[in-house]
Computed example of a mutant assay.
Amino acid sequence: MTTPTSWKKSSFSGGGEGNDCVEVAHLDTHIAVRDSKAPARATLTFPAVSFTRFVEALKEADR
């Protein structure tokens, strides 16, 4: 698996430097997730399809 080079932070990252959130990066078939407060630490990866379903479920629960 390749190392992500482009991380995106949620618009809900909080005030200040916006370091109160997770960051995600799209790989070929997976989504990588890391803690924005400790970006050099461990990164989790999930199959893109599973991560998409997870995010959709969160959006649905928020309604």
Score class of each variant (00 low, 15 high):
35 D>L: 11
32 A>E: 09
52 T>W: 11
28 D>F: 04
56 E>W: 09
54 F>Y: 13
63 R>Y: 10
40 A>E: 12
11 S>R: 04
32 A>H: 06
24 V>A: 03
59 K>F: 06
58 L>S: 02
34 R>W: 03
9 K>Q: 04
60 E>R: 14
6 S>R: 13
26 H>L: 13
23 E>P: 14
44 L>A: 04
16 G>C: 10
41 R>L: 14
50 S>F: 01
62 D>V: 07
24 V>I: 12
45 T>P: 13
35 D>I: 01
34 R>F: 03
19 N>D: 10
23 E>H: 08
13 S>L: 00
10 S>I: 15
13 S>G: 10
46 F>D: 00
54 F>K: 02
30 H>Q: 06
36 S>I: 05
41 R>F: 15
4 P>F: 01
9 K>R: 13
5 T>Y: 05
61 A>S: 14
33 V>F: 00
34 R>E: 03
59 K>M: 09
42 A>N: 11
27 L>N: 00
24 V>L: 06
13 S>F: 09
41 R>W: 08
45 T>Y: 06
27 L>P: 02
57 A>H: 12
58 L>K: 08
49 V>E: 13
56 E>A: 15
37 K>S: 10
52 T>M: 11
13 S>H: 05
6 S>I: 08
51 F>V: 02
25 A>N: 04
32 A>N: 08
12 F>T: 15
38 A>F: 14
44 L>M: 03
25 A>P: 11
49 V>R: 06
27 L>Y: 01
34 R>N: 05
11 S>A: 08
15 G>L: 00
51 F>P: 02
22 V>F: 06
48 A>Y: 02
34 R>C: 01
1 M>V: 12
9 K>W: 03
60 E>G: 15
20 D>S: 13
46 F>R: 00
17 E>P: 12
22 V>K: 02
